[in-house]
């Protein structure tokens, strides 16, 4: 099995993004449980924040593949 250092870089980026999005999801669930009437607003902000984290992770992944 041959590998590539770029794969490790991509994996690290994904770990970071996973922790970040997990935190967002968890906190959003807590917030919804506390204030169910704000579910719509919380959900769209959750998606927005997840998208921002995802953007950073994607840049890392793409750079790791094209740089590696």
């Amino acid at each position: 099995m041959t590998g590539n250092i770029a794969a490790i870089g991509a994996a690290l980026a994904v770990i970071g993004a996973g922790i970040g999005i997990g935190n967002i999801g968890g906190k959003a669930m807590e917030a919804i449980a506390r204030q169910p009437e704000a579910v719509g607003e919380i959900r769209s902000n959750m998606i927005l924040m997840a998208a921002l984290i995802e953007g950073a992770a994607l840049i890392a992944i793409i750079l790791s593949f094209f740089g590696g």
Binding site: A51, L52, E54, G55, A56, L58, I59, I61, I62
Partner: peptide, 11 residues
């Protein structure tokens, strides 16, 4: 704009 590009593309 770069993240906008990459996000949609990569997903």
């Amino acid at each position: 704009p770069i993240t906008l590009t990459l996000r949609l593309f990569a997903n």
